[in-house]
């Protein structure tokens, strides 16, 4: 379960390192609570684990429950990321360690990203023979420059936090001991923008209209990719 705490207008959510169906439900419920709160607000998201930000979807659960469960989790991360893309208050990912797969996607769906120097970023789907569908690509396309978009999705390699900073998808690199302090400093400067929720949400929905539309609509290519993904599904990943 995620842990949510609140200090004045500043919310801090600590996520588990893997996403299961329960995690998604839990995070969504916690976002409901923040959305309902009145006045200025801002959210920092980090992980409960001391060294890992996110390993992505919960592979242990997928091994136990199979392909349909995996696809439901894929749907879960897309919906949660799309929610972050248009949520009505500023969001900051405080990345305290490696950030893979669905966790990377979610971090990109937030507005700002602070990272410790040792963090690594990767999408290993291409190596695993599990192609992302257009819905899975949409947020990467919106948040990364063309070179990084290619390197991350078809390069099959992991990137360092330093590369992330150079290429613009990490805003700031900070030492581990400073991560939450710096995130809170940034959050303080942003909280007022989270006062008029409908305005903030409206601007974000306009900015990220394309990825939001791709994630929420169905198309044949998505189905086609899922077919390939199903063929290559290996529960022992």
């Amino acid at each position: 379960m995620a842990e949510l705490s609140c200090e004045k207008s500043m919310y801090l959510m600590k996520m588990p390192v893997a996403f299961s169906a329960e995690t998604f439900q839990d995070i969504n419920e916690k976002l409901d609570i923040i959305e309902k709160a009145q006045g200025p607000k801002v959210l920092i998201v980090t992980s409960k684990h001391p060294r890992l930000f996110s390993g992505g979807l919960d592979l242990k659960e997928i091994q136990k429950k199979g392909l349909d469960y995996a696809l439901a989790l894929y749907d879960g991360i897309l919906k949660l990321s799309a929610r972050f893309l248009q949520i009505g208050f500023p969001t900051i990912a405080a990345i305290n360690g490696p950030c893979f797969g669905a966790g990377f996607l979610l971090a990109l769906a937030m507005d700002y990203r602070l990272s410790v120097p040792s963090a690594k970023f990767a999408m290993r789907e291409i190596n695993l023979g599990m192609p992302l569908t257009p819905k899975g690509c949409a947020i990467f396309k919106a948040k990364l420059n063309p070179k990084m978009y290619r390197n991350i999705l078809i390069g099959g390699k992991s990137l360092s936090a330093g590369e992330g900073k150079d290429e613009g998808f990490i805003d700031e690199i900070v030492e581990k001991s400073e991560l939450i302090i710096k995130s809170k400093e940034l959050a303080e400067t942003l909280a007022d923008l989270g006062n008029k929720n409908e305005v903030y949400s409206c601007v974000k929905s306009s900015m990220y209209h394309d990825p939001i539309k791709v994630i929420s609509s169905d198309d044949n290519l998505h189905e086609y990719c899922l077919k390939i993904l199903k063929n290559n599904f290996n529960p022992k990943l």
Binding site: E125, I126, N127, G129, M130, P131, L132, T133, P134, G136, C137, K141, Y149, R150, L153, I154, G156, L221, Y224, C225, I228, L229, N231, N232
Partner: peptide, 18 residues
């Protein structure tokens, strides 16, 4: 090696640049 599973590679590229 990424060009071995051609169905996967084309799928990702189509998804990326559809």
């Amino acid at each position: 090696s990424l060009g071995e599973k051609k169905d996967v590679y084309i799928c990702v590229k189509k998804s990326m640049y559809y």
